[in-house]
Design a binder for these strands. Structure first.
Lengths: 130, 130
DNA sequence: GTTTGATTACTAGAAAATTAGTACTTCATT
DNA sequence: AATGAAGTACTAATTTTCTAGTAATCAAAC
């Protein structure tokens, strides 16, 4: 516990959290196995970062016969929200509309995607009304 | 010129780029003046980072009687797009729809904002059709 | 009970990012 | 020409992040 300077993860921390969110819960070895495998890292490197994540409060740990089993203390959706808020704040003046505007003027966004996005918005509007 | 390892900016680089985008063009002193002012930094710190940004190709520089005057080589909108793509890739499986879904389930999003977002989407759809 | 294997804790070093000092250059002013 | 002011280039130190080694612990297998 303790530490928690920033509410945002560093690059490597995020990579490991993604692995943990993927598997739900797991030991250092499990997490190492769930990593993208691009980079190849020492067991102790993963263990060290997991401990840091524990210190920062992003995960919790439980001992299961000798080994630590980690679980997310922050949900992925929660962190996604944080990331969006963070990006919105730094680059879009805190207005999500500006963010969406930039998103949809991306050329390689297919018609289907746009349509899907429209449906998401419409659903949300209907939910508010109802 | 040269350098350009990552296409993404570091935190401090981004902070300075935002200042430069704000003023359009300016000397180290101008940029220093346009910073949020939260942090207070030495003149030479700003100068060093601006040189790095030049090396990486994010800005261009021109001498105007002795002093360097910097201009963005990457538009803010371009970098906004990059950032969104980056976030979408790491955290939303590369699907912008998932990103939007997360964005709109943010509670402190007002009805007006949602409505605005809807209009942005609808406009984009109409543009595609026509 | 000793060895082996797996794991954590601690430590440290490498790499990347940030900050800023010092020396040098150049121009304007005296 | 000497002095001072402003700026850049170079260098270096600090901080943060990332990586991994070593030692200690503990349980199981022999």
């Amino acid at each position: 516990m303790a530490r928690r300077r920033s509410e945002m993860l560093t690059d490597v921390e995020l990579e490991f959290m993604i692995a943990l969110w993927e598997i739900g819960t797991g030991s250092v070895r499990d997490i190492m196995g769930a990593l993208d495998g691009e980079h190849q890292r020492a067991y102790t490197s993963v263990a060290t970062v997991m401990k840091i994540l524990d210190d920062k409060g992003f995960v919790t740990s439980d001992r299961k016969d000798r080994a630590l089993v980690y679980s997310p203390a922050v949900e992925k959706g929660d962190y996604e929200g944080r990331s969006l808020k963070n990006l919105s704040k730094t680059l879009f003046g805190g207005t999500p509309t500006a963010l969406v505007a930039r998103l949809v003027d991306n050329e390689d966004l297919t018609d289907e995607m746009i349509q899907e996005i429209k449906e998401i918005i419409d659903t949300r509007i209907r939910k508010d009304d109802g």
